[in-house]
């Protein structure tokens, strides 16, 4: 049991190190580049919208590949967020709805 909890797969380790390197690069780049490159408003807008686009892409993919329980769960979380403005509560409501639907209606 202990080894199951503490095991680190080598492929997973590479994935984590890759993520860490990519993330550090984005954090250091702004401090580092400022001496050499001008970050224009255009670049700023591109980067900002690109990050939003990645989030939208992941939600779109989850919805397209998902089941009705996923659609209803997501829609509920989205609606709850607009009403309550409490992120964690909204997500948990969506999760609970999806889990209940799967338990009773969709097997």
């Amino acid at each position: 049991m202990m080894t199951e909890l503490t095991a680190i797969d080598s492929l997973a380790l590479f994935a984590i190190l890759g993520m860490a390197a990519a993330t550090y690069a984005t954090r250091a780049a702004g401090f580092w580049l400022m001496g050499y490159v001008e970050i224009t408003p255009r670049i700023e807008r591109f980067l900002r919208h690109m990050a939003g686009g990645v989030l939208v892409a992941i939600v779109t993919a989850a919805a397209m590949n998902g089941s009705p329980a996923m659609w209803i769960g997501l829609a509920t979380a989205f609606g709850a967020m607009l009403l309550l403005r409490k992120p964690m509560t909204a997500i948990l409501i969506g999760v609970a709805i999806a889990a209940l639907l799967r338990h009773f209606a969709f097997g």
């Binding site: 990519a22 993330t23 984005t26 954090r27 250091a28 780049a29 702004g30 401090f31 580092w32 580049l33 400022m34 970050i39 670049i43 700023e44 980067l47 900002r48 690109m50 990050a51």
Partner: peptide
Amino acid sequence: NARHIVMGA
């Protein structure tokens, strides 16, 4: 994380 570039700058 690309947004960090602008934030750091």
